Amino acid sequence: MKVIFLKDVKGKGKKGEIKNVADGYANNFLFKQGLAIEATPANLKALE
């Protein structure tokens, strides 16, 4: 799953980066902790 990092995550990505991560990692950790959002077309456009 492609995500946009909202904060730096050690060993995974930095704020503003768009990366592929495992679905479970994104859903169970990144999204719940507010560290990333899904890289949907709307979210990508808002990032610009």
Rank of each mutant, 00 (worst) to 15 (best):
K10E: 14
I18L: 06
K2M: 15
E17W: 04
A39M: 07
G11T: 05
L6T: 05
K10A: 13
A42F: 05
E48G: 12
K10G: 08
K45F: 08
M1R: 09
K14M: 12
N27H: 14
T40C: 07
Y25K: 05
F5Q: 01
L44P: 03
Y25Q: 04
L6G: 00
K32M: 12
K14N: 10
K10F: 13
N28I: 06
A46L: 14
G13W: 11
A39R: 00
P41M: 10
M1F: 09
K15E: 07
V21D: 02
K12N: 10
I37F: 03
A42L: 07
F5M: 04
F31W: 03
A39P: 03
I4F: 05
N27G: 07
F29R: 06
G16E: 02
A39G: 03
K32G: 08
N20C: 15
I18T: 06
P41S: 10
G16L: 05
A36S: 01
L6V: 09
K7S: 11
D8I: 00
P41L: 11
K7H: 11
F29D: 10
L35E: 03
F29S: 06
G16H: 08
A42V: 09
P41Q: 11
I4A: 02
K12I: 15
I18Q: 04
K15Y: 05
L35N: 02
K45L: 13
M1T: 14
A39Q: 01
N28G: 10
L47Y: 14
V3F: 00
F29W: 11
L44T: 06
D23V: 15
A26H: 03
V21T: 02
Q33S: 09
P41D: 13
A22I: 08
V9D: 01
Q33K: 13
K12H: 15
A22Y: 09
A22D: 15
L30N: 00
A22Q: 12
F29P: 06
L6P: 01
G24N: 14
K15R: 12
F5V: 00
G24A: 14
G34L: 06
D23R: 14
F29I: 14
I37M: 11
K19T: 08
G34E: 07
G13N: 02
V21E: 02
E48D: 11
A46R: 12
G34P: 00
Q33C: 15
L30W: 06
L35C: 06
K45Y: 08
L6W: 00
I4Y: 06
I37H: 04
K15H: 05
A36W: 02
Q33M: 14
K7P: 01
N27C: 14
L47E: 05
N43M: 08
K45C: 10
L6F: 03
V3N: 00
V3G: 01
N28Q: 10
K7C: 14
L6I: 12
V3Q: 00
G34Q: 07
Q33E: 14
L44A: 07
N20L: 15
P41T: 11
L30K: 00
K14H: 10
K45W: 07
L35D: 02
K19L: 10
A22F: 09
F31D: 06
L30C: 04
K7D: 07
A26S: 03
K7G: 06
A22C: 12
D8F: 06
V21N: 01
I18C: 11
Q33P: 00
Y25L: 08
G16S: 04
K32Y: 07
V9R: 00
L35M: 06
K45M: 13
N20D: 13
E38H: 08
K14I: 08
L30S: 00
A42M: 07
D23H: 15
A26Q: 05
N43E: 05
K12T: 13
N27R: 15
E17M: 06
K2L: 14
L47W: 14
A39E: 02
K32S: 13
D8W: 06
F5R: 00
E38K: 11
V21Y: 05
A36E: 01
K14R: 13
L35A: 05
T40A: 03
G24H: 14
F5E: 03
D23A: 15
L35T: 03
K12Q: 15
N27I: 15
K32L: 14
K15W: 04
V21R: 00
K15F: 06
V3Y: 00
E38Y: 04
N28R: 10
D23K: 15
N43P: 01
G24V: 13
L6Q: 02
L30Y: 04
I37R: 05
L6K: 01
T40H: 05
I4M: 07
G16C: 10
G24T: 14
E38T: 06
K15L: 07
V21H: 02
Q33W: 15
N43Y: 06
N28F: 08
A39V: 06
K10T: 11
K15V: 10
L6D: 01
K10S: 09
L47D: 03
E17Q: 11
G34T: 02
L30A: 02
E38P: 14
G16M: 06
V9C: 05
K12A: 15
V3A: 02
A26Y: 11
N20V: 15
G11D: 08
Y25H: 04
A22M: 12
F5I: 02
P41E: 14
T40W: 02
K19E: 04
K2Y: 14
A22H: 13
K2W: 15
N28H: 10
P41H: 10
G11C: 10
K14A: 10
A26T: 04
K10Y: 13
M1N: 03
E17R: 02
G34W: 05
K2A: 11
E17Y: 02
T40N: 08
L6H: 01
G11L: 04
K2E: 09
P41G: 07
V3D: 00
E48N: 11
V21K: 00
A46T: 10
A42W: 03
Q33V: 09
D8S: 09
Q33I: 07
D23I: 15
G34V: 03
K12V: 15
K32W: 09
K45I: 12
Q33G: 07
P41F: 09
E38V: 08
G11I: 02
L30E: 04
L44Y: 01
K14L: 12
K19M: 11
F31C: 07
I37P: 00
V9Y: 04
N28P: 01
I4N: 03
V9G: 01
K10C: 14
A39L: 06
L47R: 07
A46Y: 12
L35I: 08
A42N: 10
Q33L: 14
A42S: 11
D23M: 15
G16N: 07
G13Q: 02
G13Y: 13
K14T: 09
L6E: 01
A39D: 01
M1L: 13
E38I: 11
K19G: 08
A26W: 07
K15P: 05
G11V: 01
V3I: 08
A36R: 00
K2R: 13
K7L: 09
V3E: 00
N20G: 06
N20M: 15
